[in-house]
């Protein structure tokens, strides 16, 4: 259903767009306006860096982009379809087939091995057992963890967990990769490596990437930059790299 809806529309417009999106958590006195009035379009093949101080609404934006949360006001369109109109199941299928998500807190299954963590999205995609294994191993290899496949997530260091999370987001070859500070726990060299990998996927496979980062160095890989403050985009720029 969702596959049909979304792919059949040989969509020329933006992959995702926010139209005056606001997100309010809580009610009355306690209400927090995490996003105030945010509008942007992201096109196929773009590599966008989202920056801003802590609490400025970056993760909130990512959650909405990832169809995990919905705007309080305004519209979020995924390939022209208002996500709010989709059912829970349709949103699940959309995540399954189009999105890869690297969470700020990794969100791995902690008592599950690295390999099994990577297989999970493939299982939901009904990839055969052998295909699944190959794809998972390849993704592990790409993040330099091929010798840690049988360690559970809890047995891995923070940086290693982060790399498994990145591998899990990429293993399904999504069309949109959402990464919330994926290199936060990595040393410079490793971060650089990961960023080069993302840049390569972006350049060669046309993978659309939205990346939240605090670091200039990382943002430099992106072709475009959105800067948040207090739930609004305060600055938008195209970098020379694009």
């Amino acid at each position: 259903m969702v596959e049909g809806d979304l792919s059949a529309k040989a969509h020329d417009g933006p992959v995702v767009s926010f139209e005056h999106v606001a997100k309010v958590y809580g009610e009355g006195e306690m209400a927090v306006r995490a996003l105030d009035d945010v509008s942007f379009d992201i096109y196929e093949g773009e590599f966008v860096a989202v920056m801003g101080s802590s609490g400025s609404g970056k993760s909130t934006t990512m959650n909405i982009l990832g169809c995990l949360d919905t705007p309080t006001h305004g519209r979020y369109l995924f390939r022209g379809v208002d996500v709010k109109t989709l059912t829970r199941d349709q949103r699940a299928l959309l995540r399954r087939h189009y999105l890869g998500f690297v969470f700020q807190g990794f969100n791995l299954l902690s008592r599950t091995t690295a390999l099994e963590n990577l297989e999970l999205p493939l299982i939901y995609r009904r990839i055969s057992k052998s295909g699944r294994r190959d794809m998972a191993m390849e993704a592990l290899h790409a993040v330099g963890l091929e010798n840690r496949e049988h360690h559970t997530a809890a047995e891995l260091s923070g940086g290693q967990q982060q790399r498994v999370a990145i591998a899990r987001a990429m293993v399904t070859s999504p069309s949109l990769l959402l990464a919330d500070e994926p290199t936060g726990n990595l040393d410079t060299a490793r971060s650089q490596e990961i960023m080069e990998l993302l840049a390569k996927l972006n350049a060669e496979n046309g993978l659309t990437i939205v990346l939240v980062t605090h670091e200039e160095d990382m943002a430099a890989f992106a072709g475009r930059r959105l800067e948040f403050r207090d739930g609004n985009i305060v600055h938008e720029s195209k970098s020379q790299a694009a």
């Binding site: 199941d89 699940a92 299928l93 995540r95 969100n107 939901y124």
Partner: peptide, 14 residues
């Protein structure tokens, strides 16, 4: 949390 993760990577209710 695990259920949330499964849903986030595409598990349906069913």
């Amino acid at each position: 949390r695990e259920i949330g993760i499964r849903m986030a990577i595409g598990a349906r209710e069913k």
